[in-house]
Design a binder for these strands. Structure first.
Lengths: 202, 202
DNA sequence: ATGACTTATGGCACACTGTGACAGAAAGGT
DNA sequence: ACCTTTCTGTCACAGTGTGCCATAAGTCAT
């Protein structure tokens, strides 16, 4: 890996960290791109070369999580029920989180606090989730051998799975360690499985 | 009702209709507020007094639907299971749609086509849905006698209900009459009820 | 009607986001 | 050293959204 790419990655993270701190300090909306750029000594124009906009900073985790889920999904046995499959994909995201560096862990917790304090960002987050949902629906439709444009059950399976995750991640909004997040998530999955009729997703 | 309010309502609808047509003609992003304002002979500044922004135009239906659902929810018997309740609230939205004027019906169908063609707007729509979900969660928590900040099941019930609605409304994306929307919705509800264990939401 | 009031509108200036175009700086390979 | 490729900053620009203030329109007395 050349100096160029290492430097880019460094700037990337510097921007992210500066932005998260500024957002938490003075609020999301009241933080300007100019301020973020100033904090890491780059021009505002360069900021937009690293990220598509302020929103993108908040959605980095979602991008990563989506990759992980699609990857995890691909590695599950073909005969595993779709919903079970999706819950496993979710666990893969959790596992990745646990294996993360302390820096990444801190970023995740900051992001979580940020979402707590800014309902608008929760909106952004679920909107991004809708895109993930589309991608997952295509994979699940293929698994089930149906046309994603026709089959409602496929969309219901994916939508409910994403909802289950979201509830696990979001609720409750207080400060939380990874252990607590993981516990909430497990609780959420258990709740879901207890509520569904066995074989509903076949 | 005075002349003032009637005139305001007229401009309001004129803006909405002009905007929807422009969006469908030349795309959402490439339509400017200036164009919309020009089409109804008002200043751009006035546009922002009627609507908070371009987004708001797309979310008018969601605002209305949320009102209807909260209203419907309030009128349901206290001992009705939460999920059933929410499905009834959803039916209230459908009923309102059927009772709508031809103008409103046309607006709804245009909005639907618009969402079809613009994934970004689907994101907006889902984000708005998250806000509705919060409000519904509070009502359902009260019904169930639990603290919305603590109870995951409440959030799961509401999230799954919203997902069920969304799947009913969105899928599939082709042109549809109200009959088709209603049919899809009924199908979605049936699918949901078939998939859930009786009494899961108590 | 006339006048006094309340409210809606338009115009202006402004801050902010995001993008295209171009010139110069930095890193890569030879 | 050289040339090539890629990154960066500067400038210009279009668009969104908001505060501010003067003016026009509507409302409601007498």
């Amino acid at each position: 890996m050349g100096l160029r790419e290492r430097k880019k990655e460094k700037t990337r993270l510097a921007i992210l960290d500066a932005a998260l701190d500024l957002f938490l300090e003075q609020g999301y909306e009241s933080t300007t791109v100019e301020q973020i750029a100033g904090a890491v000594e780059i021009s505002p124009r360069t900021f937009f070369r690293y990220f598509t906009g302020k929103d993108h900073l908040v959605l980095l985790f979602h991008d990563h999580a989506e990759d992980l889920m699609l990857e995890a999904l691909a590695s599950r046995p073909a005969d595993e029920p779709p919903f079970t499959c999706l819950m496993q994909a979710m666990r893969a995201v959790l596992a990745d989180l646990q294996a993360a560096t302390p820096e990444d862990a801190a970023r995740f917790l900051k992001l979580r606090r940020l979402l707590d304090e800014h309902p608008r960002l929760v909106g952004l987050s679920v909107a991004r989730g809708a895109r993930t949902e589309q991608h997952l629906a295509e994979v699940i439709a293929a698994r089930r051998g149906v046309d994603p444009a026709q089959d409602q059950l496929t969309h219901l399976i994916v939508a409910w799975a994403m909802s289950t995750m979201r509830v696990g991640f979001e609720c409750p909004r207080r400060e939380g360690t990874f252990e607590e997040v993981q516990h909430r998530m497990a609780e959420s999955i258990a709740l879901a499985e207890r509520s569904l009729r066995p074989g509903w997703d076949l």
